[in-house]
Design a protein around this nucleic acid. Structure first.
Lengths: 252, 252
DNA sequence: GCTAATAAATGAATGGCATTCATTTAGTGG
DNA sequence: CCACTAAATGAATGCCATTCATTTATTAGC
């Protein structure tokens, strides 16, 4: 398939005009060397990575596939990012800008936290492979992430939280949110005990009883319904429990 | 290095005695074909995987390394497990047996949940790469996991939880636990905003204030201290919030 | 305006990885 | 006794991230 090496010596200085206008997606070998206008930058890489993920999922996000989407050789990416992890960081930071923090600008703290938490969970439920990345990511390298924390911190502060409790409270909420994002992707029948149901009567009964009360509607494969119930319960508990901390001092 | 193909025809039927007693770890080429006594089984594979992880971490857990630890060719593993994911499942289920559910057999529900949650978090803080695996793992394939759920479910039931709220409550707690396990592994300075500190005054102040109140002692690299504070706060909130659900009906 | 340094691309390795397959040998059931 | 199955070896296979030498273009300094 790959044609056998000529075309390099041939046609010495065709200006090549404005790149590929032939409307076919990718053909048209580009010759080596720095192009007049740069083909890549971080924003473009981020956008291509996001689009690739939305089409093929995270298994489909390989450096080779990303390069192909950008019509570039894989090694070219390394002039702009140091590693694949670096690409994931770019994606992660972009996603943070999609999290809804608008509630913190007005209205009661409880409502703001709820809005923020639900949108945060929804964004990352579609991107669970990033969660291990976030958990270790220094905020310095992530301006959008930092911006989110600033807004949320201010919201907590304005709501009367003592300084030293703001970060732990946010971390606790975030932990719950990340864990809950995984739930959304779990299969609905994950708790079906099958053949060992006899030896686990309490659990089996609990599973059936919760499935019965929740699943009035359609039975999709994704465990959205169950996950939503658990998220709602946990979030209520956290909001009221953490909200009560605005006042006395215990955690120091 | 690899000696060049003889030894196959040579020495036709040396009994090979009881395998490798030469006390050197691994040398002594084994000849192909089924051995008299099986070298591998799931328990052995699980144990070797755990030991390998504790020595080299999860990056060190490769099928090749696992095979070498068991003094076996990599392909031999596939007679006992279908994939590497399968190995991770075995490890995961083994770890579940280390989670402390003893509190549910006697004493107040609140204490039992706290003991369970702390030990659950501590076990998986050392094994965060398994968390994505657990989240999707059907309990049928995981007897220890199922056993844990049975004990916990019974504890909730005995404490007066209505059937249909038991599973969501456990899921909410687990979500928080998994998310918190990641925190433990995060670097202590993850929230240092560095050069952009000026543009994030509230967050920067909150970070410094929580660091000041928590870190009276030694400054290790791992964020154990901060993570513990957040976990403690969140767990208190969840325990009191969820505990209050024993009675009225709202989540159906 | 020349020239050295730097930036951005290609293309050809490299090494690690999980997994598969043909082959060999040893037990097992009819 | 013989066919079948189980459990091992060893040699591929294909994918993947990353590196390196090379080519070409732009930019900074004299």
């Amino acid at each position: 398939m790959l044609e056998t090496t000529n075309e390099r010596a041939a046609m010495p200085a065709v200006p090549a005009a404005t790149g590929r206008s032939t409307s076919n997606g990718s053909a048209q070998r580009r010759r080596a060397g720095r192009p007049s206008a740069a083909l890549l930058d971080k924003a473009g890489i981020t956008a291509a990575a996001l689009e690739l993920v939305s089409r093929k999922g995270y298994e489909g996000l390989t450096m080779a596939a990303l390069a192909k989407a950008l019509d570039v050789a894989p090694s070219a990416l390394y002039n702009h990012v140091a590693s694949k992890q670096d690409v994931l960081l770019l994606v992660e930071d972009h996603l943070m800008s999609l999290v809804d923090v608008s509630g913190f600008e007005a209205g009661p703290w409880e409502d703001a936290v709820r809005t923020w938490a639900w949108s945060y969970r929804d964004v990352f439920a579609e991107h669970t492979p990033l969660i291990p990345v976030i958990a270790v990511l220094p905020v310095t390298d992530a301006p959008q992430t930092l911006a989110m924390y600033e807004t949320v911190s201010k919201g907590f502060s304005d709501a009367g939280f003592p300084q030293e409790r703001i970060v732990p409270a946010i971390v606790a909420l975030e932990s719950f949110i990340f864990g809950s994002a995984y739930d959304v992707t779990a299969p609905e029948d994950i708790f079906e005990s099958g053949s060992m149901a006899d030896s686990t009567p309490h659990f089996t009964a609990a599973v059936h009883s919760s499935a019965a009360s929740g699943a009035a509607g359609q039975a999709g494969k994704e465990g959205g319904r169950q996950a939503d119930t658990a998220f709602s319960m946990g979030l209520d508990a956290l909001v009221s429990g953490l909200g009560a901390l605005r006042g006395r001092a215990e955690y120091l």
